[in-house]
Design a protein around this nucleic acid. Structure first.
Lengths: 202, 202, 202, 202
DNA sequence: AATGAATGAGATTTCATTCAT
DNA sequence: TATGAATGAAATCTCATTCAT
């Protein structure tokens, strides 16, 4: 039964735990991360973890939520400028910016993403999908011809998954056979061409 | 000091262990699968596992290799018929056949795939990527205009990752918002449109 | 370094802790009761417990002493009226009154008794035995023929233990096979018959 | 998931664990006994406990069952000779023999009894109550006038509880004020007088 | 005097691996 | 070669107690 932090320093410890979890997971993967490691990195005693979290899983869940919020916030921040430009350019830009974001802090986010992405947290990751979906929708509204697209949700789903996964995988590949810009360009074209063709078809 | 099986009976036991590992992982995930479970399912003693494999990880590696070979074989078997038909149709067909393959045996392969992608061993999965790459290449040869495509490896890489991941994620989604055929169609169009547009551009 | 409470407010807190301990032990048993629970129920901080008590055991000891005093006081209050009536009636009455006492407050005392008898501290419970012994003695004085009884202390010891334990056990039995009145009657007759026969023998 | 012992030495280990639990509980009480202690006393690794028992509680349960069986067997062995003699003598004899039994092996059984008796194992201890009840019944059959007794089950219940608890408590008292023979005599008379008076009353 | 965040020793439990048979 | 009992390091989690505020 973790207590809700009541004093000022509590918040600090809570955040320290989440940050420590990021570092530990980036280093060892979520499955191999132990409570001791997290406590050590956070510079606190093991017992203190349980003042703030029910159990280990609760720490991971909080981290994922935090992560999802961070990504969603990043996407939202980019949204206004991206909706103004053509789809191809928007996807290209988003891809680059996203990669930059993932690679910050010694690739902490990237490493965590790889470890967490497949834990099927459909619910926990939903803010991300919502933010990306909204970006898609807003872009369509700003470019009304795109509203004609059939299967918009399906298309969004696939574009998003394709982009996120290709990027994540690329970034964690030790010796990629091509540059990241190339990848971004192909992703962008894939989206652009798809929309162009579909619209022409009608 | 495990030895590669040399006798017929040994080979049988070796295979039984791999099959048991499939079953256990499909049921509990790779992290929660224990050596005891594997031995029990395989119908042998725990100690015997170590006659055939150095350690637990070696079993998982062997399973992944086996899995990769199985997928590659499946792709290779489909290749001759797929290279003959237009790209869009080929992707559509491949997606459906692939899903069917993953869902066989009570979704054993699908469940394993989800659990194993976590450890995403680039080397172990390479036969799959090679087989899919070869399918791409052969298709291009059978439709020579596609050889003009810029960045063919990059494009292949992205198409493959996009397809595999979107599909895996879709299939493990409890309440998908659209049908699998829709997904396959969008993937197919994505590929078809991309190639069409790129070729026209030159 | 806890101090005995010297001010009125302190005394209140001290009592609140004891009461909280009663509640917690009745609910969870003495082994599962934590200092946090006690503090929470008492409406004070954990740290404050240690202003009043050396450690957790000291709280339990104080509770047992309090409990013993409460029981002793109850017995003493009944003594004057019980000494007047025949032994059989007195035992019957005492048994019923005692059970009533244990079952008050949602069986708080009963539940605590069951949990605390485990640690059966002969010294801590001695006030109870003293009060019951005194009741016995006074009854004998009021009925002088009983003073002839051999082994009076032994007899008292056995009657008391028999009564207390049979009653406690009965009251915590989920589906007793007979009524409490029956039990009280048999206990009463046991005492009455014993004394009658012993006196006749001389 | 403990395995049922399949090899010969398994039984040995199982028994060693139970014996170790007796020793540990006699020494520290059931609440303070740890799995490590048990393993150490048994001369095995901690992990081995879990080859034979689901968890710690399962060890205690097995011990209680073992204990109950041992007591019941002891009572059954005494039954044939006790049913032949008058009630008073039978109770006296039973008390002495029972005490002897409890004090064997450095009072191991006695100490365990004190620690376990109040854990309200109505179900686990039922073999004991059954054996004692049967002794009562057989005695009544051998002395048919006793069959006239009202409330036989209630009386048996009280006699048994009174005897067991008085004895246990006496034996664990550091400085008893009277001899054990006195106690046995009073218990015996209590039973004898009760029955005599009740039968005369009718 | 009062607090409650922090502590860390210690409890239970798991499981890959070994080794005597 | 095959076995499965035994192992013990290591993981998660609890909670009485302390101490800075």
């Amino acid at each position: 039964m973790p207590r809700k932090p009541q004093q000022a320093r509590s918040r600090q410890t809570y955040d320290a735990i989440i940050q420590a979890a990021y570092i530990a997971i980036a280093k060892n993967g979520s499955e191999s991360t132990t409570t001791r490691q997290i406590a050590e990195i956070a510079g606190i005693g093991v017992g203190s973890l349980y003042e703030y979290f029910e159990n280990k899983q609760a720490i991971l869940d909080a981290l994922i939520e935090h992560f999802a919020q961070a990504i969603a916030a990043h996407v939202k921040a980019l949204t206004p400028s991206l909706v103004r430009i053509p789809l191809t350019d928007a996807v290209y830009e988003l891809t680059l910016k996203f990669a930059e974001f993932l690679k910050a802090n010694d690739e902490q986010y990237l490493k965590c993403a790889r470890s967490l992405m497949l834990h099927d947290n459909h619910t926990l990751l939903s803010p991300v999908y919502r933010a990306l979906g909204e970006l898609f929708t807003k872009h369509a509204i700003a470019h009304p011809e795109q509203l004609q697209l059939k299967n918009l949700p399906t298309v969004a789903y696939i574009f998003i998954n394709s982009g996120v996964y290709s990027m994540t995988r690329y970034l964690s590949h030790p010796n990629p056979a091509f540059s990241f810009e190339e990848l971004a360009q192909v992703l962008a074209n894939m989206a652009g061409h798809y929309v162009a063709m579909e619209l022409k078809a009608d």
